[in-house]
Design a protein around this nucleic acid. Structure first.
Length: 892
DNA sequence: GCTAAAGCAA
DNA sequence: ACGTTGCTTTAGCA
């Protein structure tokens, strides 16, 4: 290529990124992970346009480097008074640099110099080599660089519309040559750089003087000759003008690590750019890049088509495959099985490495093959599953015990995006590996043709093959996000602990349960009859719609708070209505509500009692966005406890005396979230409160109300307690006032008093939200993330919800992490001491253990110390214990 | 089969 | 508008 056809493109990276940031609405540009991308998008879009229009052969992007520029050293007020850069801009410059790296575009910086100096130096070099040069920058000082062969592309509005500032264009616009532009800028001043000019002198006057006296030194020499008010101003501000003139000169002879010849543009690393654009969720830019450099061959198809062919294997082939598999290799497993009400079975297993996959019908295996498979599953060190827990339970029931889990791709997917709805294997394989997969029908959806048995079989081999490909990709992403320990040391080991707890289940006193059902059913009927009598007819008390007719039309009671579909009939509103009207219908309706809820709860429990007389709840490990577990089938984490009638339900959860388990023991963390808040905020007063050994809320109350601990009244304690707990949820003064039934003013005063005493808590909560807004996610003590893209929403309600979620997530999530660590350590501690007692339930901050005969003292000690030592905080982790035959009796 | 409303837990 | 994280039940609609 001959020299004169070369074209050099020089870009001021920071200046263009910053302009792009303000040109594009930030709320329209953010990834699902919460990273703002508007500046990146605008910058890259501009870059692609210019590359298309100018077809440069050389490109360099300069960034400012170092805070102590020589200009600042000379003038300490340089660029002072600039608005702080918005949170959402942070990080975007680094991403732009990543994109540039992927596009093989040189990034040039020079310590203590600004980007424009770098550009001036490169432009100077370009000119000497006779290369056509284009400088893109939002800084007008660069106009001094314009000459034949050096054009400034100056963004008019936003970044997409660039003015071509040739020497002629500058002359026309400002009335001075590019060489004189510096003088003009010095006279006029530059507000953005905090460089004041001569008052009353604008571009027109400055240009007139420069033309008349030749250049700025000429103007200064002739300052005495200039009359009028502006002449006087000039003479008064000569120092400023000379300073401006010195500072706005761009340095064009820097020693740079690279020269013009080093910034040849050789084309883009298309796969790297694609991956970045995927991460940034840029769709249209990929197509525009294709138009520029030609489309990429699709590696997605390549990897999908290279998924290994699935071989349907018999006993002999299975044994051969197992023997031929490297002991170090990652082996993925996908099974077809069921597990319900405490027992399960498996009939198909798919096994795969990265390049080999088999499917096996387990019902056809001979004993030797079964033994070989069982041995493999318990000994192989790198087994990967997708949703292992159910499969481990089913495998155990089928005789394949102690399967050693190394990685679960569903959990890895959850950690990467804990707010997602599901972690479907086919979806993850598609988005992370470009594999398209038709999912095997799992959970008993076996309505397939028997003729199609082969297809059903191979589906599991194929799933295993996808897992084998997916696992290293996902673990790499988890590691990169700093969650390696959360995955490998908490979540994956926990799978077996939960599987064991679910498999064990908790014993139910069935006769007592059915007696409760009868009792609640009778009471519900009585309440219903009384309610009907009060209004003279029957109505479906479970139907809010029908109730609204009765309450607001028939009885003409005052309207309650509006819901989307009408007026609320919730308990709070009904209680208010009862105070106002004293209508007996309301009384009976509320009583019915209470008792029907209890009836539903106990009836639901009875349906879930398995043949072994126990309830086997299922813990969901990939649902709660904060890292908590949840419980289903049935939910044992919301069994009533606040009312006497509710607590009677806990009386049916018992230890199984006949099997040698005398009691249940319940261990719960005392105020764990408040303790975490004390630890994370480092608030000395709150830490002191926990170390004081007094009742926490009374102690805090004594500080807030300025009285002695003994003088804290029950009301004061209740207020402080509500306040303390509300903090963790982002409670407002309004919410506090409503909960405590006090005025908003009083609630606000209470909050102010609280924050006065516990200021570091407030600072910490504010900081969590600010930090989350900046980087797009929150983090627990152990690095578990929660992404909150809604923090950038322009919808206030959505944004504020995200803010409350942000301040809650690290606290609730750290508590969840600590409890999970405690559970792992408890499992080990029980095993180490050869204790027969076993963990049954987890209710967020509580563990229920079934206590084997004679182990009360030992287990109590293990629970207290293991839970207490699960984390090292700056406050003690207190554990409360209670023992009794039933869950209720074990309450403390 | 879906959503809304209700209410239970930490 | 106003307090986080969940699950289950029922009614009522499609």
């Amino acid at each position: 290529m001959s020299e004169h056809s070369q074209k050099l493109l020089l870009i001021d990276g920071h200046s263009l990124a910053y302009r792009a940031f303000f040109a594009l609405p930030v709320e329209n540009f953010s990834t699902t992970t919460g990273q703002s991308t508007n500046a990146v998008f605008g910058f890259v879009s501009m870059l692609l346009n210019v590359c298309r229009d100018e077809a440069p052969t050389h490109i360099a992007v300069a960034f400012d480097l170092g805070r102590e520029t020589f200009r600042l050293a000379e003038y300490s007020e340089y660029k002072a008074g600039r608005a702080k850069t918005p949170e959402e801009f942070h990080g975007q410059v680094e991403i732009i640099k990543d994109v540039l790296a992927a596009m093989n575009i040189a990034v040039v910086t020079k310590e203590n110099y600004e980007a424009d100096d770098v550009l001036a130096t490169l432009a100077q070099q370009g000119e000497q080599k006779g290369i056509d040069t284009y400088v893109i920058t939002g800084d007008k000082d660069s106009f001094q660089l314009a000459r034949d062969g050096v054009t400034i592309l100056y963004p008019k509005r936003g970044v997409s519309d660039l003015s071509r500032m040739t020497p002629a264009a500058i002359e026309e616009k400002y009335g001075v040559s590019p060489a004189n532009y510096r003088g003009l800028a010095a006279l006029v001043g530059e507000k953005a750089d905090n460089l004041p000019g001569v008052p009353g002198v604008g571009e027109k006057t400055a240009a007139k003087w420069l033309v008349k006296y030749g250049d700025l030194p000429g103007v200064i020499d002739s300052a005495e000759d200039i009359g009028g008010k502006v002449g006087g101003n000039l003479r008064e501000h000569l120092d400023d003008v000379e300073r401006n003139y010195r500072l706005n000169k761009l340095i064009d002879d820097l020693e740079l690590p690279v020269g013009v010849e080093d910034v040849t543009w050789t084309g883009v690393d298309r796969p790297a750019v694609s991956e970045l654009f995927d991460q940034l969720e840029f769709r249209q830019l990929g197509a525009r890049l294709d138009a520029l450099v030609g489309p990429e061959e699709t590696p997605a198809e390549a990897s999908a088509s290279s998924l290994p062919e699935v071989t349907v294997s018999d006993s002999a082939a299975l044994v051969t495959w197992l023997e031929g598999t490297d002991a170090e290799a990652l082996v993925a497993v996908a099974t077809n099985g069921t597990y319900e009400l405490g027992s399960g079975s498996v009939d198909v297993i798919g096994l795969a490495t990265e390049d080999s996959a088999i499917s096996v019908d387990l019902t056809t295996l001979d004993p030797a093959a079964v033994e070989a498979l069982a041995g493999f599953l318990t000994s192989h060190l790198r087994l990967a599953f997708h949703g292992a827990k159910t499969q481990l339970k089913a495998l155990a029931d089928a005789g394949y015990r102690d399967v050693r889990l190394a990685i679960d791709t569903e959990i890895a997917g959850y950690l990467l995006e804990p707010g997602a709805r599901s972690y479907d294997l086919a979806e993850l394989a598609g988005t992370h590996c470009g594999i398209s997969l038709t999912e095997p029908a799992d959970d008993g959806q076996l309505a397939l043709d028997l003729d199609d048995g082969n297809e059903r079989l191979t589906a599991f081999g194929q799933a295993a093959a996808a897992i084998a490909r997916l696992a290293p990709v996902l673990t790499g992403e988890v590691d990169a996000a700093g969650m390696a320990a959360v995955l490998r040391e908490i979540e994956v080991p926990l799978v077996q602990v939960l599987a064991d707890m679910e498999h064990t289940g908790i014993a139910i006193d069935r006769s007592e349960l059915s007696a409760l059902i009868d009792e609640f059913t009778r009471q519900a009927e009585t309440c219903a009859q009384q309610a009907y009598e009060a209004i003279g007819h029957e109505v479906n008390l479970n139907s809010p719609k029908q109730l609204q007719v009765v309450l607001f039309e028939e009885l003409d009671l005052p309207k309650t708070r509006k819901t989307r579909t009408g007026y609320t009939t919730n308990a709070e509103a009904l209680a208010d209505l009862y105070i106002k009207s004293e209508h007996p219908f309301l009384e009976h309706l509320l009583a019915h509500r209470d008792v029907i809820k209890l009836k539903q709860t106990v009836a639901g429990l009875e349906r879930m009692v398995a043949d072994d007389g126990r309830i086997h709840t299922v813990y969901q490990q990939t649902i709660a966005a904060t890292g908590r577990l949840s419980s289903t089938d049935p939910n044992l984490q919301n069994i009533p406890v606040r009312t006497g009638a509710g607590r009677r339900i806990r009386h049916v959860f018992v230890s199984e005396a006949d099997a040698g388990y005398t009691d249940l023991i319940s261990a719960d963390y005392s105020q764990i979230e408040m303790r975490i808040m004390a630890h994370l905020s480092g608030d000395e007063s709150l830490i002191a409160a926990f170390n004081a050994g007094e009742d926490l809320h009374s102690y805090v109350g004594s500080k807030v109300f300025g009285v002695g601990v003994d003088e804290v009244s029950a009301q004061m304690r209740a207020k402080v307690k509500a306040m303390s707990y509300g903090l963790v949820y982002g409670l407002s003064a309004f919410g506090l006032s409503r909960q405590l039934r006090i005025s908003v003013e009083e609630a606000r005063a209470l909050m102010e008093g609280y924050f006065e005493r516990f200021g570091a808590v407030k600072d910490y909560l504010d900081e969590i939200v600010a930090e989350a807004r900046g980087r797009g996610y929150t983090e627990t003590m152990y690095g578990r993330r929660r992404y909150l893209p809604e923090l950038g929403s322009s919808n206030r309600q959505i944004r504020e919800m995200a803010e409350r979620a942000a301040l809650n997530a690290p606290i609730q999530g750290s508590a969840a992490d600590i409890m999970k660590i405690a559970m792992l350590n408890l499992r080990d501690a029980f095993a180490a001491s050869d204790l027969k007692s076993r963990m049954l339930l987890q209710v967020h901050d509580e563990i229920i253990v079934e206590l084997a005969d004679g182990e009360r003292e030992a287990v109590s000690e293990v629970l207290r110390t293991t839970m207490g030592q699960a984390a090292e905080l700056s406050v003690p982790l207190d554990v409360n214990l209670g023992v009794g035959r039933s869950w209720q009796d074990a309450a403390h």
